[in-house]
Write a protein that binds this DNA or RNA. Structure first.
Length: 764
DNA sequence: TCATTCACGTAC
DNA sequence: GACGTACGTGAATGAA
C-alpha cells in the first residue's frame, strides 16, 4: 500500500506513512534529521542511515528523546550520535516546515493575468534567474519576424519588441544569396552558425547556415529543410557562393563552439579558414569551470538578451530542425549568430583584462582545426577482436557468478553495490571497513582490506575487473563506430576541464586500460590500417619537470639535468641511502611521494596509497621538503597567491579562480584545504596541458608544411598518437620527437619517448 | 517512463 | 577529512 491515488499525486495519510516508513508522520522530520536527505542537501548524522534512524525513533520517538537516552544506546551508534548532535538538530530544523508565518495571500490576486513581462524579465536578470525564464507564461502567441531580403517590412516588430532582437532574414532565392554575398565580401569578420539534424556533426545532415557581419541583423540560408517546410537553396549553389567567403582567411570567422559548426560544414563540403573567435572557448578561459557555457546563458548574462530556447522549436528532440519551418528557424538561427557576433566584443575585453589574449590567440584558437582534423580522421578499431574478447569475458564472468552465488547461498545482482554490501556485511558477517554517504562501501580498497578474510572476495574482485572492462570498453566501443567511415570519431572537448587539459568523449579515448594485463588487451583493438604504423610519443614525468622549473629548486632541477631516474633519485634522497642501494619497493614509494607532492600531499593520503604507516609517510614528506626546499616554498607561495589574488595561473597565463580562498570567504576548514590542493595542482597540470597543445599545433603545421600523409589521431594528456604510412615512419619519429622536446624550453629538459606498433597493445 | 544521482573504476 | 584532472556504466532514486 503506497497511499491513496488522488487526482494529482498520491495522498499519504497516517496509515500510508506507517506502511512506507514504519513511523508516524510527525517523526519524519526526525528521520530526515538523523539520516539526512541528499536530494535536499540535508546532512543528517554521518554514519546513521534510514534503518538505524527508524529503529531508534521507534524506541525513543524523536531526536530529543534519543539524545535524552544517549547513554543507554548501543555503543556503535552512541559515538556517531554524539559526534553529530549539532548536525542532527540543525537537519531537523532544516526540514521542518514553518507553518505559522503571517502570510496574507489572496489566491485570486495571485492569478496570472496580463503582466509587464519586461519588468519581470528585468527582475529575473537582477536576481540571476536564468532557467526560470522559460517558465514565464506567455501573454500572447510568440510573434516571430521574418522577411525575405526584398521584403524588409516587419509587421510584428512594434507589436512584440521583446522577442525580436534584430532583423533576421531567410535567404531562399538565388538573387537574395547573391545580395548577401555582395555584402559579406565587404566585411572584415562574420559570425557563423549552422543548424543540423542532430548533435553528432559527423552524422547529422546540414539544415541551414546562419551568417552575420553586423549587430542587429542576420541571414539564414536554408539548405536541408523537409518538403513543405519552406524553400531550400540547393547545397551546390550555396557551396559555390558562400564557399569562397568561408575559405577566405582575410575574413575572420566567429563561432560559438566552432568545433561543431566546422565539423558540420566540413562534412557538407565547406573548408573554413580564418577562425578568429570562439565565444564558448573565450567564456571558458575567462572563468574556467563556470556552470553553463551555452550561448543562451551568455547572451542573457552579458548582453541582457533573452533568447528563445531550442525546445520551442524541436521540443525535447521529437523532431529535428529539418522538420521545423524555415520561417521559424530563420529568426532563431539569426539570433544565434547575432548574439555570437555581439558577444565577441564583450568577451574580447574580458580576455584582455585578464591578459588571456596571447593564450587565446596562440594556443586555443589554432588548436581548434587541429582537434577537428583528429576527430574527423578517427581511429580504426578491430571490432571482431572486441567481440571475441567480450564472449570470452562473458564465459569467465558466468563461471565466477556461479561460484559467488554458491558461496553467498543465493543469487543477487553482482553489479549492485547495495546488494553486495548486504551479502558481505549482513549475511556473511564481514566487518565493513568503510562507509559511503548512503551505506557500505564495497570499492577496490575495501576488497583489498577484506582479501584473505573470506574466499568470496577474490572472486568478486576478479568479477569486478572483467565486468568493468566488458561493459565500458568491449561492448561499448563497437557501437561508437561510424557506419560510414568504419572508425571511431571521439569528440575532444576544449572547454571540459578546469586546468586546461582537453577531455575526450564518445568514446573517451583517454582512459583506455593499460595498467593491468587483461585491461591492456583492449588496446590491441586499436589498429593501424594496412601499410601504416601507430606511433606514440609521450612526455616522461612532464609534471615533475614543470615543478622543477617553476619552483626553481636547484636539487630537483639538477636531478633532471643529470638525466637520472627521478623516482630512484627521490628514494635515495628521502630514505637516506645511496642511489645504488635503492630497491624496487623504495622506488615505488618514492614515486608515490613525487606524485603526491603535485596533488597536495598529506601523510594520511600517502600512507593510504602506499601502505606505509602514517608516521613513515610523514617522515618521508619531511625529508622530501628538507631535500627540495624550494618545492615547499612554491607550494606556500601558490596558496598565498590564490588567497591574495583569488586565482592561480600556468606559465602561459591560463587562470583558475578560487573565490572560496579569498579572505572574506567563510569556506570551512575542509573545503579550504581542498581548494588549496586544487590551487597547488592547477599550474602544474595546466602548464603541461598548455605545452602539449603547443606541440600539437606545431606538429600539425609541420605535417602540412612538409606535405606528409601521417595523421595525428589521439591525445592522452602527455601523449600523442599518430597513424603513419610505412614510408614516413623514420621522418615522423624524428620530427615529432624534436617538436615535443623543443616546443617550450624550460630550465630542465623535456623528454619525449617514441614507440611504434601495428596495434596500440604492442608498442615498442 | 525519463532524468538525475551515486558508487565505482578506467586513464593521466 | 584525508591526493589533482577527467568520462562512462549500472543501479537506485526521484520527478513527471
Amino acid at each position: 500500500m503506497m497511499g491513496r491515488k488522488v487526482t494529482e499525486g498520491t495522498l499519504y495519510d497516517v496509515s500510508a506513512v506507517k506502511s512506507r516508513y514504519d513511523l508516524l508522520p510527525s517523526q519524519l522530520v526526525d528521520l530526515k534529521g538523523l539520516a539526512g536527505d541528499s536530494s535536499d542537501n540535508v546532512p543528517g548524522v554521518s554514519g546513521i542511515g534510514a534503518k538505524t534512524a527508524t529503529s531508534l525513533l521507534q524506541q525513543y520517538q524523536d531526536i530529543e528523546g534519543i539524545y535524552a537516552h544517549l547513554p543507554e544506546i548501543e555503543k556503535r551508534w552512541q559515538a556517531k550520535l554524539a559526534e553529530g548532535r549539532d548536525a542532527a538538530f540543525q537537519s531537523k530544523h532544516l526540514v521542518q516546515l514553518v507553518r505559522d508565518v503571517p502570510v496574507e495571500l489572496d489566491l485570486q490576486a495571485a492569478r496570472v493575468r496580463a503582466y509587464n513581462r519586461q519588468q519581470v524579465v528585468d527582475l529575473f536578470r537582477q536576481l540571476g534567474f536564468f532557467s526560470l525564464l522559460s517558465r514565464l507564461p506567455e501573454q500572447e502567441e510568440r510573434k516571430t519576424q521574418l522577411s525575405l531580403l526584398e521584403e524588409v517590412e516587419s509587421p510584428y516588430q512594434a507589436a512584440s519588441p521583446r522577442t525580436t532582437t534584430g532583423e533576421y532574414y531567410a535567404v531562399d532565392t538565388a538573387a537574395a544569396l547573391d545580395a548577401l554575398v555582395a555584402e559579406l565580401v565587404q566585411a572584415s569578420a562574420l559570425a557563423c552558425d549552422v543548424e543540423t539534424t542532430g548533435l553528432d556533426p559527423m552524422q547529422a545532415e546540414l539544415v541551414g547556415i546562419a551568417l552575420t557581419a553586423w549587430p542587429g541583423r542576420a541571414y539564414y540560408v536554408p539548405v536541408g529543410h523537409a518538403p513543405l517546410k519552406g524553400q531550400n537553396l540547393p547545397l551546390e549553389l550555396v557551396r559555390a557562393k558562400l564557399g569562397p567567403i568561408l575559405a577566405d582567411s582575410r575574413i575572420g570567422k566567429y563561432f560559438h563552439n566552432a568545433d561543431f559548426d566546422l565539423m558540420a560544414l566540413a562534412e557538407a563540403g565547406f573548408a573554413v579558414e580564418g577562425i578568429a573567435f570562439d565565444t564558448m572557448i573565450a567564456a571558458d578561459l575567462i572563468d574556467p569551470g563556470r556552470a553553463n557555457l551555452g550561448l543562451k546563458q551568455l547572451a542573457w548574462e552579458r548582453l541582457g538578451v533573452e533568447m528563445t530556447p531550442i525546445s520551442n522549436l524541436i521540443g525535447k528532440g521529437q523532431i529535428t530542425m529539418a522538420q521545423v519551418p524555415v520561417s521559424e528557424v530563420a529568426p532563431y538561427a539569426g539570433a544565434d549568430v547575432d548574439m555570437t557576433f555581439r558577444l565577441v566584443e564583450v568577451l574580447r575585453r574580458d580576455l584582455a583584462e585578464r591578459h588571456l589574449e596571447p593564450l587565446f590567440q596562440k594556443v586555443e584558437l589554432p588548436l581548434i582545426p587541429v582537434l577537428l582534423e583528429m576527430e574527423r580522421h578517427g581511429v580504426m578499431l578491430d571490432v571482431a577482436f572486441l567481440n571475441k574478447m567480450s564472449k570470452e569475458f562473458a564465459a569467465q564472468m558466468a563461471e565466477l557468478e556461479d561460484r559467488i552465488y554458491a558461496i553467498a547461498g543465493h543469487p543477487f545482482n553482482l553489479n549492485s553495490t547495495r546488494q553486495l554490501g548486504q551479502v558481505l556485511f549482513e549475511e556473511l558477517g564481514l566487518t565493513p571497513p568503510k562507509r559511503t554517504a548512503t551505506g557500505y562501501s564495497t570499492d577496490a580498497s575495501v576488497m583489498d582490506e577484506l582479501r584473505g578474510a573470506h574466499p568470496i572476495i577474490d572472486l568478486l574482485a576478479e568479477y569486478r575487473q572483467l565486468s568493468k572492462i566488458k561493459s565500458t570498453y568491449l561492448d561499448a566501443l563497437p557501437g561508437l563506430v561510424n557506419p560510414r567511415t568504419g572508425r571511431v570519431h571521439t569528440s575532444y572537448n576544449q572547454t571540459g576541464t578546469v586546468t586546461g587539459r582537453i577531455s575526450s568523449r564518445n568514446p573517451n579515448l583517454q582512459n583506455i586500460p593499460i595498467r593491468t594485463e587483461v585491461g591492456r588487451e583492449v588496446r590491441q583493438a586499436f589498429i593501424a590500417p594496412e601499410g601504416h604504423w601507430l606511433l606514440e610519443a609521450d612526455y616522461s614525468q612532464v609534471e615533475l619537470r614543470i615543478l622543477a622549473h617553476i619552483s626553481g629548486d636547484q636539487e630537483l632541477r639538477a636531478a633532471f639535468l643529470r638525466g637520472e631516474d627521478i623516482h630512484a633519485n627521490t628514494a635515495a634522497s628521502i630514505m637516506g641511502v645511496p642511489l645504488a642501494e635503492v630497491t624496487a619497493d623504495m622506488r615505488r614509494v618514492a614515486k608515490s611521494v613525487n606524485f603526491g607532492i603535485i596533488y597536495g600531499i598529506s601523510d594520511f593520503g600517502l600512507a593510504q596509497y602506499t601502505g606505509l604507516s602514517q608516521a613513515d609517510a610523514a617522515r618521508y614528506i619531511t625529508n622530501y621538503f628538507a631535500r627540495y626546499p624550494r618545492v615547499r616554498e612554491y607550494l606556500e607561495e601558490t596558496k598565498e597567491k590564490a588567497r591574495r589574488d583569488g586565482y592561480v595561473e600556468t606559465l602561459l597565463g591560463r587562470r583558475r579562480y578560487f573565490p572560496e580562498l579569498q579572505s572574506a570567504s567563510r569556506a570551512n576548514f575542509n573545503s579550504r584545504r581542498a581548494a588549496e590542493r586544487m590551487a597547488i595542482n592547477m599550474p602544474i597540470q595546466g602548464t603541461a596541458a598548455d605545452i602539449i597543445k603547443l606541440a600539437m599545433i606545431e606538429i600539425a603545421a609541420m605535417l602540412r608544411r612538409e606535405g606528409l600523409q601521417s595523421k595525428m589521431i589521439m591525445q592522452v594528456h602527455d601523449e600523442l598518437v599518430f597513424e603513419v604510412p610505412d614510408a614516413e615512419l623514420d621522418v615522423i619519429r624524428q620530427r615529432v620527437h624534436d617538436v615535443m622536446e623543443n616546443i617550450y624550453p624550460l630550465a630542465v629538459p623535456l623528454n619525449a619517448d617514441v614507440k611504434v606498433g601495428r596495434d596500440w597493445g604492442h608498442m615498442a
